[in-house]
C-alpha cells in the first residue's frame, strides 16, 4: 500500500468491524427473542381459544382454571 497504508487499512478494518458488529447485534437480538418466545409460549398458550381449552380442561379436572398469574 506504500505510504497510503495508514489510510487504506483503517478503511477496510473499520468497514469489517462495523459490518461484523451489525451481524452480531442482529443475531444476538434474534436469538434472545426466539428464546423468550419459546419460553413464554410454554407458559402462556398463544391463542385465546387455546387458553379457553386449557381452562376448560383444568376445570373438568377440578384444578380451578387456568393459571395466568
Amino acid at each position: 500500500m506504500g505510504s497510503y497504508g495508514g489510510y487504506v487499512w483503517p478503511s477496510y478494518g473499520l468497514s469489517a468491524v462495523i459490518m461484523a458488529g451489525l451481524v452480531i447485534v442482529t443475531l444476538r437480538r434474534l436469538r434472545a427473542r426466539e428464546q423468550e418466545l419459546a419460553q413464554r409460549q410454554g407458559e402462556y398458550p398463544a391463542r385465546r381459544s387455546d387458553r379457553v381449552k386449557t381452562a376448560v380442561s383444568e376445570d373438568s379436572n377440578g384444578s380451578g382454571g387456568a393459571s395466568d398469574s
Binding site: T26, L27, R29, L30, R33, E34, E36, L37, R40, Q41, Y44, A46, R48, R51
Partner: peptide, 18 residues
Amino acid sequence: LRIKSELIGARLRALDSL
C-alpha cells in the same frame, strides 16, 4: 434477519397484552 426479529417482538407484545 431483522424483520424476523421484529415479527417475534410483535408476537411477544401480543403475548404481553394477552
